[in-house]
Nucleic acid binder design. Structure first.
Lengths: 137, 137
DNA sequence: TTTTATGCAAACCGTTTGCAGGACA
DNA sequence: TGTCCTGCAAACGGTTTGCATAAAA
């Protein structure tokens, strides 16, 4: 997917900042938050502001380029993987890892129980990752 | 369960404020947030501060009297139902409803996929409740 | 009497907003 | 050229904190 094209198609201008932000999240498995992205870009784009990161991510979320995560912590994280899936966060090192999970079954169950028309499903786990488990022994 | 006893057992003092806060959440199906609790108590306890509500809820969460929820919105909500279960929030009226759900299967799946030792599971849905569905027709 | 809790106000932190100057198309 | 974007700084909203006073044990 060409991000420049996607931006143009949705009526947004292509700017160096937007390309740079996309560069940091594209196939980035670390699920960074706005601050992470900002700090990553700081050396190469010292004039870029945190507000621009936020505004860019809002657009990216709107046009379906990223997914916004709430992993039981204060700051939002962004995931380039927009395919529906769950997340697990390590309470020791704060690493966040993707988890494949069929959510249709859960949606159906919730709909049956409550009568709601279900829009979104969010599944998130916390735990201790393999590396931190080793360190603790 | 006698809240006064639970507080004492855990080394906390029993105060009118704590009893009053507990009174608003005990068997309250509305999953209120701190502001809601504060406003509910305002008429009867005009001197009670929002800070006290927060401090009280922190204790209640610590001693297992309430569960803290993140329902894909800004403010936390509190649930007197501490039995593991999921939640669904109506995006129109913001009502939050409990959903029974077996989370052991999901935990096991996540553990198998990632190697994590799973601590917590959070499942939350958004959608449109039956009443708001009717209104929209 | 000792210890803990309250209420106030200020601080905090992630995020959003308004706006003047600057860049894209 | 017209429109949109950027960067700054200030505002915002939910939450936390420090501290003097007050209440519980």
């Amino acid at each position: 997917m060409d991000i420049a094209e996607v931006l143009r198609k949705n009526g947004y201008k292509v700017t160096p900042q937007r390309l740079a932000v996309f560069g940091t999240i594209d196939h980035n498995p670390n699920h960074p938050n706005a601050e992470d992205i900002y700090k990553t870009l700081q050396p190469r784009y010292p004039s870029m502001s945190l507000a621009t990161v936020y505004k860019t991510m809002e657009i990216f979320a709107k046009i379906g380029v990223v997914q916004v995560l709430q992993c039981e912590e204060d700051a939002h994280r962004y995931d380039f993987n927009t395919h529906p899936h769950a997340h697990i966060r390590c309470v020791r090192c704060n690493r966040v890892v993707d988890v494949d999970m069929d959510r249709d079954v859960l949606s159906k169950l919730a709909a049956e129980q409550t009568g709601f028309k279900v829009n979104t499903v969010s599944i998130s786990f916390t735990g201790v990752c393999t590396e931190c488990q080793k360190k603790e022994q």
